[in-house]
Design a binder for these strands. Structure first.
Length: 903
RNA sequence: GGACGCUUAGCUCAGUUGGUUAGAGCGACUCGUUUACACCGAGUAGGCCGGGGGUUCGAAUCCCUCAGCGUCCACCA
């Protein structure tokens, strides 16, 4: 072990961190230990699309904090790491990379097998990078239980749930309108579609000159697919046409247009008549559904016009070209009434940004509004066999507080999203992902011998993880080529990571589910959190996690989103070598609040780097003061010759310990860290350490306080605390040291406590003495007078001042005025005017005013405390607090009264 | 259009079912380098808590209203 005076003056994180981490990893402490209460966090799996960003770093810092805290509370803490295959995101990434290398159409050119191999290789590389970064952050996760959303076990879970849902009628195949991304040739869920504001032209026109109704649209090219014109039922202008059918010729194509009345139409907008295009607009599809209108698709998967369904000359055109051509046609034919420039919200793909088309397609859907028979007793509300919908389960999970969202206001957002939730399209036309476990019967039936009559019984479709064999004929089954939405597998994450559906593994880990908390950014509340609740309540009948902690997004100094194109990205791997992991972690945890975006700057991280260095130097100093051979390893006890300063620091230490513990439990990490920093820097380093330089015999206390500080800081800054722990020679390692439990039986803590007050007054005196020195010729006696009135007698004052100043080498006033209280103070003297030098009349007036205020305050409190209704519903601690405040105010009132009388 | 959030010191933000004199970090300014630390210490200045109204003995905090900024959802065809 190095001697502390040989330690470098500044903490050098880069020489420390890797060694500390690998020592932890080797010792096996990341695995759940002992027999405490299960405490499990399943890590939100980062996408295997490359590298981690600060959002991930935030997630890791907070989760590691919670895990370490609970591990030290001797819970069976288990943090399961993993990565997400991220289906479309990863595939897109690889396609782009391959295109850069000159392969224009990677999927066509390579074929499914070769292309998938490329994606899998890339995903593996990403995984290795990510794991490295996660370790760099100091994350104490159990690497031996690492999972992947696309590994074999997770695939089993996916197939199992798919089958269950299919059997329950919750998954069905249907020909419906879906979001289609023409760029990547796949469907998208509603959540993967964003809107972009663009300038558009709104045309007001007739289909042809004989058609009686004028309509408006920004998408004239889709009008080939119109099958109706809808008007409001009460609109007098169009009443005579409702129910009639027309056959106008629109740009060379004959349409069949019914006029229908529907409440969804706003009579005030445009002409009050809406051309209904069921195949290319969700709203129109709904209207069409109500009136049983046919659906005519005019745009194909390639985002070009379908030749058979449009007028001559329009087939094969791109949407843009067709739009221009329709407009030109209408104008030429004199059908165009007006053209107006409008702002339009264009749906675009979240990834890639291409405009999304709404097309009717045969796809797989999860039905969220369909009642089904529950397989388990669910959420304590439903019995096995009861009927409910998935939506109802999702709502009840949060309404009943079985899952708590922090901060609470996101409840509303969550409920609102669920209420508007439509069936979830889960099939994707991409290759990378869980292939849909559905098999289709080949068209040609070649009957097996003797089963000729049964051929009619051949099943068209079988849901199965493995290739089925037809009982009646020799036709082969072919698996659906589509894959599942990536969120389908992530929805199962909490329990699939714990081994479900494997019976043995699941039974072994059953106690860890529901997991303790899900910590993630609020931006994926819908994508993921809601779907995990859906899956877990459906499959297991219980919530996936007890709490949800949502952190804010990390933005740059100007509040902009960090993005590569803006060049304002702070890469965790850049700042970690510069300032150390501990500093980066602190800057992501302190000065932030849940659900609120945070701005991060280099200066902020630098500030916390300074703090880690402060802690380092505190330790260095303490270790020079301590002769470890003298320190007995038995339990720390307050020395018999303890001074007031000693008692004060120890009382504060317990107080801070208690507060920090409570705050972490309440997810108030920032506040906990701030209080701890204030104590460490202001109380311990700047004040107590200074006294310890002069007063001897403090080594035990110094050693004890340092130990406690290291423990309390450990979840926030694991590396420096662990390293110092070792240097200081404390028993074991910081990571496994039990969290201190503060005895509060005989020692009431809190700011109202008399003892604490006394010590604090004492500290104020010290501070004032320092000020006195600084302002030696200014005589700021009045301020000192205020401090002295807090003490009971002159004897007390003398005693206290002596105690204090013994520890001070400061110089004080040269001459002591008559009548002042004086005390020896090391090399000099310190003096106070007990009466103060204030104007007595002014002072009396001031006191009377103060008295009035206090009396007022007191009567308000008493009024409230005598209010029976308030007393009934008010929580105990509030009442206690108010009572204490009342007593305190009473005391103050009495003391002021006395002083007023004297004057 | 609906919902949510933000507005507090020059900057970044705390402020716990209303409580006495509104806090911290950074920055600014003054002073200080003698043995833990200049990645330091001791101090100082700086606030009509976005505007207006209300409830209350008492409001940054609760209610109403207006304004600016931001986010999400839905979308008008």
């Amino acid at each position: 072990m190095k001697k502390s005076n040989e330690l470098p003056k500044a903490y050098e994180p880069s020489t420390v961190e890797d060694g500390v981490y690998s020592a932890w990893e080797k010792s096996g402490v990341f695995k759940p230990q002992g027999k405490g209460a299960p405490y499990c966090i399943v890590m939100p799996p980062p996408n295997r699309t490359g590298t981690l960003h600060l959002g991930h770093a935030t997630m890791l810092a907070i989760e590691d904090l919670m895990i370490r805290f609970h591990r030290m509370q001797v819970d069976r803490a288990w943090w399961i790491p993993g990565t997400d295959h991220a289906a479309i995101a990863t595939q897109v990434k690889v396609e782009k990379e391959l295109q850069k290398k000159g392969i224009k159409n990677p999927r066509q050119e390579l074929g499914r097998e070769k292309f998938l191999k490329k994606v899998v290789d890339f995903a593996q590389e990403s995984r290795d990078t990510i794991v490295n970064q996660v370790k760099k952050m100091g994350s104490s996760c159990d690497w031996e239980s690492e999972k992947y959303t696309l590994d074999e076990e997770r695939n089993k879970a996916v197939n199992e749930v798919f089958t269950m849902m299919y059997e329950d009628g919750l998954i069905e195949r249907g020909y419906r309108l879906v979001n289609w991304d023409p760029q990547f040739q796949t469907t998208l869920s509603d959540d993967e579609v964003e809107t972009k504001e663009v300038k558009a032209k709104m045309l007001t026109f007739r289909y042809d000159k004989d058609f009686p109704i004028v309509i408006s649209t920004t998408r004239p090219e889709t009008k080939f697919g119109d099958t109706a014109v809808a008007v409001h039922p009460k609109d007098k202008r169009y009443k005579k046409y409702v129910g009639k059918t027309f056959t106008p010729t629109f740009c060379g194509k004959t349409l069949t247009i019914q006029v229908v009345a529907d409440d969804a139409v706003d009579p005030e907008f445009g002409t009050g008549a809406l051309g209904v295009t069921p195949a290319h607009s969700m709203i129109d599809e709904e209207i069409a559904g109500r009136h049983h209108l046919p659906m005519v698709q005019v745009i194909g998967k390639d985002a070009r016009m379908i030749a058979d369904e449009v007028g001559e000359g329009f087939g094969g055109l791109t949407i843009e070209d067709a739009r221009k051509k329709v407009e030109a046609y209408l104008e030429k034919a004199g059908l165009l009434q007006s053209v107006e420039d409008v702002d339009q919200n264009l749906p675009v793909a979240q990834r890639g940004g291409a405009p999304v088309e709404q097309l009717p397609m045969k796809q797989w859907f999860v039905r969220v509004n369909k009642p089904f028979k529950l397989r388990n007793a669910t959420l304590g509300k439903w019995k096995k066999g009861d009927k409910a919908t998935l939506k109802e389960l999702m709502i009840h999970a949060v309404k009943s507080k079985q899952t708590n969202i922090v901060p609470e206001r996101f409840d509303k957002t969550y409920f609102h999203w669920i209420e508007n939730l439509r069936d979830w399209c889960i099939s994707r036309q991409i290759w990378f992902g869980h292939q849909i476990p559905v098999w289709y019967h080949a068209n040609v039936c070649i009957p097996k011998k003797g089963r000729e009559k049964d051929v009619a019984k051949c099943l068209d479709l079988i849901v199965s993880a493995t290739k089925p064999i037809c009982a009646f004929c020799n036709a082969e089954y072919e698996q659906d080529s589509d894959t599942l939405d990536t969120w389908f597998s992530s929805g199962l994450w909490t329990f699939s990571a714990l081994g479900w559906p494997d019976k043995k593994k699941w039974e072994k880990n059953r106690a860890f589910h529901p997991t303790a908390v899900l910590e993630t950014g609020y931006d994926i509340l819908f994508f993921w959190v809601a779907r995990m609740i859906l899956m877990s309540t459906y499959v297991l009948g219980e919530v996936p996690f007890k709490d949800v902690y949502l952190h804010g997004l990390v933005r740059d100094e100007e509040g902009k989103k960090m993005s590569k194109s803006l060049g304002n990205v702070i890469d965790p791997l850049d700042v970690i070598p510069k300032y150390g992991t501990d500093a980066v972690r602190l800057s992501l945890v302190i000065g932030t609040s849940p659900g609120q975006d945070m701005k991060l700057s280099d200066d902020k991280i630098k500030g916390f780097r300074n703090f880690t260095n402060k802690l380092w130097n505190i330790s260095r100093f303490v270790l020079t003061q301590v002769d470890k051979t003298e320190i007995i390893k038995s339990k720390f006890q307050i020395p018999k010759n303890a001074t007031l300063a000693d008692e004060w620091i120890l009382v504060r230490l317990d107080e801070v310990t208690k507060h920090v513990t409570e705050k972490i439990q309440k997810y108030e990490f920032s506040s906990a860290g701030e209080e701890l920093r204030d104590f460490t820097w202001n109380d311990f380093a700047d004040w107590y350490l200074e006294i310890a330089k002069i007063e001897s015999g403090k080594s035990e206390i110094l050693y004890h306080v340092l130990q406690r500080i290291l423990i309390l800081w450990h979840p926030f800054m694991p590396f420096v605390t662990e390293y110092v722990w070792g240097l200081a020679g404390y028993e074991g390692s910081a990571i496994t040291t039990p969290w201190p439990v503060v005895e509060t039986k005989n020692q009431k803590l809190g700011t109202g406590n008399k003892e604490v007050k006394r010590f604090e007054t004492l500290r104020d005196v010290v501070v004032t003495i320092r000020r006195l020195r600084a302002d030696m010729n200014v005589e700021p006696i009045q301020k000192v007078e205020v401090v002295i009135t807090g003490m009971k007698s002159l004897e007390d004052q003398k005693d206290m001042i002596q105690t204090l100043t013994r520890s001070s080498s400061l110089q004080f006033m040269k001459e002591i005025p008559e009548g002042w209280v004086s005390a020896s103070a090391g090399k000099g003297m310190v003096a106070f005017n007990p009466e103060g030098t204030v104007d007595l009349k002014k002072e009396k007036a001031r006191l009377e005013k103060e008295l009035k205020e206090v009396e007022n305050y007191l009567s308000g409190l008493e009024k409230k405390l005598s209010n029976t209704e308030f007393m009934k519903k008010a929580p105990k601690n509030i009442v206690e607090d108010m009572t204490a405040k009342r007593d305190e105010a009473k005391e103050k009132r009495d003391s002021i009264r006395v002083r007023v009388e004297v004057l």
